[in-house]
């Protein structure tokens, strides 16, 4: 579903939660091999996304609590702190060139979500 840009030699798949435990169009945070991963569920796209939970501009682990939505063709989370957008597919920050967050691979088995980090 999504590709990993964060290079991690020990990356393994970890089962985190059931899809229905994420309220529609919101996010949750999961602890995966020591990484804080923000997972979002878009009801309209019926799609899941996994990115880093750390907001490099606001400098806190909060991205899972941001609002998600579209900016043109891109699908983004807006940081709950200062509202910069991060592309959920590429991790890029739309406002600050050169700033990005890691994206993680994610898969669905039945209703269970697994993340590789």
């Amino acid at each position: 579903m999504s590709t990993a840009t964060a290079e991690n030699t020990e990356a393994t798949w970890v089962k985190v939660c059931e899809k229905n435990s994420i309220a529609p169009d919101t996010g949750v945070c999961a602890l995966v091999n020591g990484h804080q991963v923000a997972i979002f569920y878009s009801r309209q796209l019926d799609e899941l996304f996994a990115v880093g939970n750390y907001d490099p501009l606001g400098k806190a682990y909060v991205l899972s609590r941001g609002l998600i939505g579209s900016q043109g063709e891109r699908f983004c989370v807006a940081s709950p702190l200062y509202k910069q957008h991060f592309d959920l597919r590429t991790g890029e920050c739309l406002e600050e060139e050169g700033v990005s967050i890691p994206t993680y691979e994610l898969k669905l088995e039945g209703d269970w979500i697994s993340v590789r980090a």
Binding site: P24, G58, A60, R65, L67
Partner: peptide
């Protein structure tokens, strides 16, 4: 369920988010 995804930073957890989350 159909409103939670609309709530901004503070309303979504019914508290003001501080700078450290």
């Amino acid at each position: 369920n159909n409103l939670v995804g609309l709530q901004d930073t503070n309303d979504i957890y019914l508290g003001n988010m501080q700078k450290d989350g």
